[in-house]
Amino acid sequence: MIKKEVLKNVVFDTIKKGSCCIPKDVREAFNSAIANEKTQKAKEGFGNTLKSLDLSIERMNPACPDTGWPLFFLKVGNEAKIEGGFMALEEIARNMVAKATKEGYLRATMKHPLTGYDPGTNVGMNIPHFTYKFVPGNDIEISYAAKGGGSECFGGTRYKMIAFADGLAGIKKFVIDAYAAAARAGAICPPAVLGVGIGGTGNIASALAKEAACLRLVGSHHPEEMMSQIEKDLYDSINSLGIGPMGSGGDTSVFSVNVEYAYTHIAGIAVALSSNCWIARRATTRVYSDGRTEELDNPNWFDGR
């Protein structure tokens, strides 16, 4: 049985780390970009951002004042038991989001969509949001993603239904066109970690894209050859565009293209993209049934990637 006291600490620390400390694979992506960029200006764009990100880890302050939508992704062991059940876990998560906001680890960013009312806690109708996945075992893995507003609001996240007749060419064209438009003038804070969802209903494709953008490691590959080839082709093509850091020109235009798919209806193919901004914040902690905890670099949300 996992105790509430343990969960409180784990959830709070995971939020804090998620907001303040960029993951190792993202840090590596910055280093490669600095090495590969040809102009001093582009090198500085990446270099100054990385310097600031490292200072955030040292000072434990938010990597960016836009601390984003609070999203929880939970990998739950089929036999896992929690004191008070999963509703208690969700209540703890809401309280810890509010506490992290009060203490300045998150900015009060979530508002009522129509009245603009700001509770000052980042907690409101359907927010924070929870996504569950069930796996064998009795542990739980808690991932927190701080999903930036820029990368969500300016066309970096959207979907389209495509006819079978338009196939792969239609899918690739939608992704490259939408991404280039969204990255214009740095709107989505590029280079992004780009998640692409293919198939399923519109919302299944969108959820896969979001999870691929927020939870898969930069540079990871889909295990199926056909999908990893699409990832590679889109990655190379987008990186030939010249978008650069904050859209101000350069050789690095996307950090990673992560594709996931679902079977679809004979009527059409949903294609969704979700861009996570270049600071791609997330943190994952595993809680064992005996209360031990372990920080993980890889959320391993999709088996093995």
């Binding site: 200006k41 500085e44 270099g47 951002t49 600031s52 955030s56 302050n61 990597a63 003038a185 740095g186």
Partner: peptide, 10 residues
């Protein structure tokens, strides 16, 4: 004027 970095700490 536009930033080319996201560098709050700097």
């Amino acid at each position: 004027l536009s930033p080319q970095s996201v560098s709050p700490n700097l």
